[in-house]
Each structure stands twice: as structure tokens, then as C-alpha cells.
């Protein structure tokens, strides 16, 4: 198995963010981590990436314990954060070279890996442009290229389509799915946008820190007795599903 989360709980000063969360993801699986805002998705990402310390439970990545083998675990992880973490005043190449060095890749190896990943993301011709001059979709592609530079086996994406137009969102989603099939990379894709999830996808539905469902999108529909995932999401979480292009309801806007 690729990711094994075992009974993790996490509390902030005044709020329980995650409660007894457990799930297992297999190698090469695309898994959507679905949940309304505040469900605990970002907290889970912070725990998976060691930004926060585990308070309770265990996390294993490729069989390695996050607490006892952090170095090996971080080598296995590629992360795309919700907010862009690229340096806008540096070029694409410089941003990627910085990340490569953080993983201990020497200059020559880094250059080869950067060229490969930019090629894969169809961004090679933009290597020497400043990030500031790129549009949102291209910046995201650069961030995915960056996350893959050190050849991780697990890719974590925290609401990666935030701020993108529908076309760019769709393209990015397809790109990442391709990675799963081509390179057997396990993907955990956190989102609150229901149209980014296919019925056959593995779906983890998180709500108020609890795992409501851990099957496929179809299982989610069966569980709720609804025929559409958006309706299933709404019924299980009592929060209207967000579908881009539709005006947010009063509750969503709050």
C-alpha cells in the first residue's frame, strides 16, 4: 500500500479538526479527498507533510513510518499546496532548481530532471520566463513539475485548481490522472468541487473531521441513495455541493 492513515485525530486549541481518521490508498491510485471548507482536508495535508506533529494515530507512506523515518518519507512525497509557493520574481528554471537542491540533487541531475518534467507538463519552452508572467494554469503546471522533480511515489495536491478557469481546471485534472496511469504515482487530490471527481474514482468524503465515506464515487451515491454525486455530497454533509459555473448559494457564501 502507498498511504496508510491509521486512527489519526487532531485538535486545535478550541476545535477538533480530525477524529479517528483511517484509510489506505494503493499504489497508482487516484483518490479524491472531498469535503466542504473546514472539513479537515488542509489539516490532514499538514499532518501528511509534517507541518503539524501527529497528536494521535499513525501515518505510513510506502510502509515507512512518518514519525520514525521522516527523511525517507519526505523523499516519497511530492506536494502541491493550495496557495502558490512559487517565487514570482524568479524564472521557472530557477524555481525548479531551488526545489531540486532542497532534495539534494546536483546541478547536472537537476537540469535533466527539470527538462523531463517541464517536457511532461508541456512547459519546456517557458523554462526561462519569470513565473510572474505565467497565467494561473501554467503556474500550477510548474508546481506539479516541481513536486515530481525528485520522483516521488505519492503526489498530494491541496485544492490545486483554486483560482483556475474551467478549461485550465479540466486540463490539470487530466494531466494528474495521466500521471497515475503512466507512472504509477498515487495521487491524493483534495477538493471541494464535485465536478473534479469521476464516479469510478476512489473518494474519501470528509466532514467536520470525520470520514463519512471511503469507497468510489458510485459507492457514495449508493450510500446516500442519490443518483448524482453532487446530491450525495449534499445529503451526507448537509452542505450544498459546489459546482463551478453555478452561483454559490446563500449558505456557501457564508
Amino acid at each position: 500500500m502507498s498511504i496508510e492513515v491509521d486512527k489519526i485525530s487532531f485538535r486545535y486549541a478550541r476545535k477538533t479538526a480530525l477524529s479517528e481518521l483511517s484509510f489506505i490508498l494503493e499504489n497508482g491510485q487516484f483518490c479524491a479527498l472531498l469535503g466542504p471548507n473546514g472539513a479537515g482536508k488542509s489539516t490532514l495535508f499538514a499532518l501528511l507533510t509534517r507541518l503539524y506533529a501527529l497528536q494521535q494515530g499513525n501515518i505510513h507512506i510506502q510502509g515507512l513510518d512518518l514519525q520514525t523515518a521522516p527523511t525517507q518519507v519526505m523523499q516519497q512525497l511530492g506536494v502541491v499546496f493550495q496557495q502558490s509557493t512559487l517565487d514570482l520574481d524568479l524564472t521557472v528554471q530557477q524555481n525548479l532548481a531551488y526545489h531540486a537542491s532542497l532534495h539534494g540533487l546536483c546541478g547536472a541531475t537537476a537540469r535533466v530532471r527539470i527538462a523531463q518534467e517541464l517536457e511532461r507538463m508541456a512547459m519546456k519552452e517557458r523554462a526561462h520566463e519569470k513565473v510572474r508572467s505565467l497565467n494561473g494554469g501554467h503556474r500550477r503546471r510548474v508546481e506539479i513539475a516541481r513536486a515530481l522533480l525528485h520522483q516521488p511515489s505519492v503526489l498530494l495536491l491541496d485544492e490545486p485548481t483554486t483560482g483556475l478557469d474551467p478549461q485550465a481546471r479540466k486540463a490539470l485534472n487530466l494531466h494528474v490522472r495521466q500521471l497515475c496511469t503512466d507512472s504509477m504515482i498515487t495521487v491524493l487530490w483534495a477538493t471541494h468541487l464535485i465536478d473534479e471527481v469521476l464516479p469510478e474514482d476512489r473518494v474519501l468524503l470528509l466532514h467536520q473531521g470525520r470520514l463519512l465515506s471511503s469507497g468510489t464515487g458510485l459507492d457514495l451515491c449508493n450510500l446516500s441513495g442519490q443518483s448524482h454525486m453532487a446530491d450525495a455530497f449534499e445529503q451526507l454533509t448537509q452542505v450544498p455541493a459546489q459546482i463551478p459555473g453555478q452561483a454559490p448559494t446563500k449558505e456557501q457564501a457564508v
Partner: peptide, 27 residues
Amino acid sequence: MKMTPAHYWYCFQGILIREYLRFIQQR
């Protein structure tokens, strides 16, 4: 993969280069 002194050195180099690049960007 075990981290060797070379990995540490490349990492330091990368952090230093980035600081320098940011410095010359912010005249």
C-alpha cells in the same frame, strides 16, 4: 536513499543561490 554530505552541500548551495537571486531581483 540515504542522504550523504554531497546532498547537504547541494542543498546549502541551492538555498544560497536562491537568496542571492532574490537579492539581485530586489535592487
